[in-house]
């Protein structure tokens, strides 16, 4: 009986560790994405002509995007496919190479934009496409809400 309990307790704690491991990764990657959201918020007013153009803020947002891509890709362990209301598509684990390429493209685009953007005109010419072809495009292909 005692042994039984011990085994049970052990297996429960193993399961709990697993659960913790995956939830942590999911929570962290959602946090990374929230930071992308916040960075985007800081420049959207300028894009819409509601706030005055400010180059340092734009460059900071672009740097945030690049930093975030580095961390983001480390947060998709096999045990994080489900749980914590993740909206990551299961397709990510079927085609990790494709997903990593999408992340790399985002990094490269943000980097190229940080060179290209020197004033308001270059900002308005460059930024919308960086957002559309990355935030929107990656979410279109690699994300499903309420899939579980």
């Amino acid at each position: 009986m005692k042994l039984h309990h011990a085994v049970l307790a052990l297996s429960l704690s193993v399961m709990a560790t697993f659960a913790v491991a995956s939830t942590a990764a999911i929570g962290e990657r959602q946090q990374v994405m929230k930071s992308n959201g916040a960075a985007t918020k800081s420049i959207m007013g300028m894009l819409k002509g509601e706030a005055p153009f400010d180059l340092p803020t734009v460059q900071k947002a672009l740097a945030t995007y690049q930093d975030n891509t580095t961390k983001f890709v480390t947060l998709f362990p096999d045990d994080s496919k489900t749980g914590e209301k993740t909206s990551a598509s299961p397709k990510i684990w079927d085609d990790m190479a494709g997903f990593l390429a999408a992340n790399e493209k985002f990094k490269a685009d943000a980097k190229a934009a940080s060179v290209a953007i020197i004033d308001e005109a270059t900002f308005k010419a460059t930024m919308p496409n960086v957002l559309k072809s990355n935030c929107g495009a990656c979410h279109e292909a690699w994300r499903i809400k309420d899939a579980q």
Binding site: M33, N36, G37, A38, T40, K41, M44, L131, K132, C135, G136, C138, H139, E140, A141, W142, R143, I144, K145
Partner: peptide, 11 residues
């Protein structure tokens, strides 16, 4: 494509 939380709609 941005929601008020600056999430970008997908799917």
């Amino acid at each position: 494509g941005f929601t008020p939380d600056f999430d970008s709609v997908g799917g």
